[in-house]
Design a protein around this nucleic acid. Sequence first.
RNA 1: CGGGGUGUAGCGCAGUUUGGCAGCGCACCGCGUUUGGGACGCGGGGGUCGGCGGUUCGAGUCCGCCCGCCCCGACCA
Length: 605
Amino acid sequence: MRMSQIFGQTLRETPSEAEIASHQLLLRAGFIRQLAAGVFSYLPLARRALNKIEAIMRQEIDRIGGQEMTMPIVHPADLWQQTGRWYKIDAEMGRFKDRNGRDMVLAMTHEEVVADLVRQEVRSYRHLPRLVYHIQTKFRDDPRPRAGLIRVREFTMKDSYSLDTDWDGLDRQYRLHYQAYFNIFHRCGLPVIAVGADVGMMGGSLAHEYMYLTPAGEDTLLLCQSCGYSANRQIARLRKTATAAERPLELEKVATPGAKTIEELANFLGVEKARTAKAVFLIAAYPPGTTEPQIRQESFICAIIRGDMEVNETKLANTLGASSLRPATEDEIRLTGAVPGYASPVGLKRASQATGGSKSAFIVVVDDIVPQSPNLVAGANEAGYHLLNVNYGRDYSADFVADIAAAQDGDACPNCASPLQAVRGVEVGNIFKLGTHFSEKLGCTFTDVDGQEKPVIMGSYGIGSGRLLACIAEEHHDEQGLRWPVSVAPYPVHLIALVGRGSSDTMTTADQLYADLLAAGNEPLYDDRDESPGVKFNDADLIGLPLRLTVSERALKQGGVEMKRRDQSERRIIPLAEVLQVVQSELKQMEMDILEQVREVNYPD
RNA sequence: CGGGGUGUAGCGCAGUUUGGCAGCGCACCGCGUUUGGGACGCGGGGGUCGGCGGUUCGAGUCCGCCCGCCCCGACCA
């Protein structure tokens, strides 16, 4: 490609809206342009890098038996109504009506459509197992897109779907993906870790997320250096220590004027935060029922946790089977008879009439360490007063006792009790055991060997290609610009012609080298523009192709062309006759270096 | 949705306080010089100052409403 012909320009200055390196550099180097919040065009350079990434994904998924197809972006709403997600998902779903007034959905993901195909195509166990995938656009109207390509509203995803007759089959395909995904990321030059993840409302049994660790990430992960335990904070477990075993003491009301937070309370009374009980009030919304999907069921939740811990909303929602949680307003708290700042479940009516309005229930959830923590300080439900020696079971009861605590940096590992480390990461992929959730809702059944009709067992596996591109840029750049791994670089070679006045041989030599490289299958990005050397070198550094060749009068006088790797500072003069061969072996070496990163990983059992 | 910021040429910004010709740098076009790390000279083109309404003789500037974009939080199959 001649740079004099390429569509798109480099920018000297960083557009002000970009904050993180990948966003800034992808904009400056002419890879992407933003159309609207979280909606981007991918210019030719980005498209070529994405093509490389997608080729790697195809190879790895084909290798584990995947069959590529393409499913639509526009879906009829009734499919999504059948699985309930039309009702469950709120504004994040893109909806419109077609010209006949029929409700339509923009694809957020493709489980529904896969399942629809499966119920048409799969009748017998002879049609299973299968693995299908596609690379297709998704739209999720995220409330807050950010950080360039890291979090967008429209994006492309490689999503595969496994179809099995039994759970062992699902486990097999899941494990194959577990390794294939590492291969994909490693071949793209991206270091990742797999962490246990929330299975949420998908009815599945297991999920992993592939995380690229970076402070720019928005997921928090808890890692154990000593035993290898790793999990998204949403589900991370922790080892909790019970407070000293004591006999329950007499309940006692004490004045605690102004002590509305746990911090203030602990200071005022001179007790450890672990000796207090915190009441957190939330409103839970439940997934719509199949019979009356339009009615949004809500209930009032009082979560009790020890004062030294925080409530983990994902764990709490999973305990409740709720689809979402939001903090209750102070007015809603008062409706229950509790007093904000001095609240506890002690003495509260648990009956539904206590809440009024549309809230049909009042549910108390207690963290599982609280019953082993006797004589806690809790609110008296009276402004300015708390109760000493509150004991679970004696003074109040619960609808659920479960682990609802958020793991924090320094907490004890659930397996080995070593301190957990909290780090940030970007989720570049996930794998998910769906089970029969979608097949049951959409009637995907097959006739098994025994003549019985059974639901197809599904898994879904996704990698966002744009986000992956951004993470690679985030990992591989320096002050000067991008530094693409050879496996995903838009072009392997950046050929620069430095042509001064009256040195037409330089241009001829460069043109010839361009043609030779093209013919050898190493298409270079050829800077044939009438620009100064500084502009050309700076653009080359910015775009970040792995290998740079400079043809100039000076280099020719020294006996050839100059070669420089983007990731090294050393420059070599290569005799003209050897250039093709040296380029070939240099690229080969870089490819080998990347393949060395690809390795067998242990599946965490 | 809450909090903060911002919107002036393709990009980066000044001008808004105190109303009075719409500016600077880079980029772009033409001519010439220059050619190993973002060259120079001369000439030139490009604007609904986010939008609508109001105040005023006069609004980029003051007032009201709306919108876009960015950041923090909420949210995230």
